[in-house]
Design a protein around this nucleic acid. Structure first.
Lengths: 192, 192
DNA sequence: TGGGTTCATTAACAATTGTTAATTTATTCA
DNA sequence: TGAATAAATTAACAATTGTTAATGAACCCA
């Protein structure tokens, strides 16, 4: 049940059985339906979610439109980090794209963990480092690649997501309109 | 001399005099001239640089062209993080834009710090968190804003950099060509 | 200081994207 | 299942950006 959780942590830091147990207890299992909002724009994010199963979409709202900023999948810690860390209102919304199995911890639980499990600093440090490296990778693609190249790379690296996620969410994640993405796909098909 | 360094750290974590001294010793002062390469593409990044004075440009190379990915200024820890953390060859180059006063630590020094100063985990965790939040902010601007809006925001938030950094570096940082940035500036002037 | 280099602007044209709207194709759930 | 809704494609035109090249301005530094 919590195997993915433990494997993920094992890759970050070595843990004794006792430490494992502490973590086990701190994160609470929760199942949520599809299209469920876990965090909302304008509110303070109170929790972090480890995804055991399912997908979570992070999006911004601009002029009434939803612009997808990221798609979290299994094995990731999803959250509106900015808001969670600073405990300030968020400009992001988190919504499930599928029914999800989550392991949840709230701000208070996190603070307690830092006390009872000093290694938690290492875990969150490494998670933050990985997230930063990933964000930088995506960012570099925006300045180095054309939308077409960006889509090609996305296709290669996330074949699975193409099948699980509506195309227009992917379009806005790539920084383009659904219409433009459709044209790009057509161009790529024709040039094969 | 090291006031900016200590102030920056003070904002991240509380430190005793002894802990301060340990940090003081771990980071070595180094002055480097303008246009000096601190890390190069294809090589493993060995150091992290706290900028006491000066500017450092991070850039990628694509088809012989340099594309600016970030500009580090005073008070920031600059590095080719990805490469430094994984100790793998980097796809980024770090080059000073001005003569710089730096406080430098290498990989070994960092590992030792984690041992002698457990709070170092908290410091790097918070630095990573801040860097991630910043990367996410920039990233969101790529999917939410037009190049023109992106430039307007950059202008507002980094008036100082506009004066210190050649315009074409800023252009590639914004994901556009120098020609396009020049046109945007003209448009904005005319619409005043 | 002055000659050379780099940088910023402008122009003209091609290519791409955005926008709006209509049509077709999938998906949802009562 | 079948009607209603949402999503993807296509088309046409406007707006923006990329590209290449020429010119003028700014800046090194020997």
């Amino acid at each position: 049940m919590r195997q993915l959780f433990h494997n993920t942590l094992k890759n970050l830091v070595e843990l004794s059985e006792k430490e494992k147990a502490i973590l086990e207890e701190a994160f609470v299992f929760r199942q949520v339906p599809k299209k469920f909002k876990l965090a909302e724009e304008g509110q303070v994010a109170k929790e972090v979610y480890f995804i055991n199963k399912g997908l979570i979409r992070l999006y911004y709202t601009k002029e009434g439109e939803e612009i997808t900023g990221f798609i979290f999948q299994e094995g990731l810690f999803a959250s509106s980090y900015d808001s969670f860390l600073k405990q300030q209102p968020s400009n992001q919304t988190l919504e499930t794209l599928e029914e999800c199995e989550l392991l949840v911890i709230d701000k208070k639980g996190m603070e307690e963990l830092y006390q009872t499990l000093p290694k938690m600093h290492i875990i969150t440090r490494k998670v933050a480092e990985l997230r930063f490296i990933n964000a930088q990778r995506i960012l570099s693609s925006f300045i180095l690649d054309s939308p077409e190249e960006r889509y090609r790379k996305f296709e290669e690296e996330h074949k699975d997501l193409l099948l699980r996620v509506p195309q227009h969410y992917i379009a806005s994640f790539l920084g383009i309109t659904p219409v433009s993405l459709s044209r790009i796909r057509k161009r790529l098909k024709e040039s094969e």
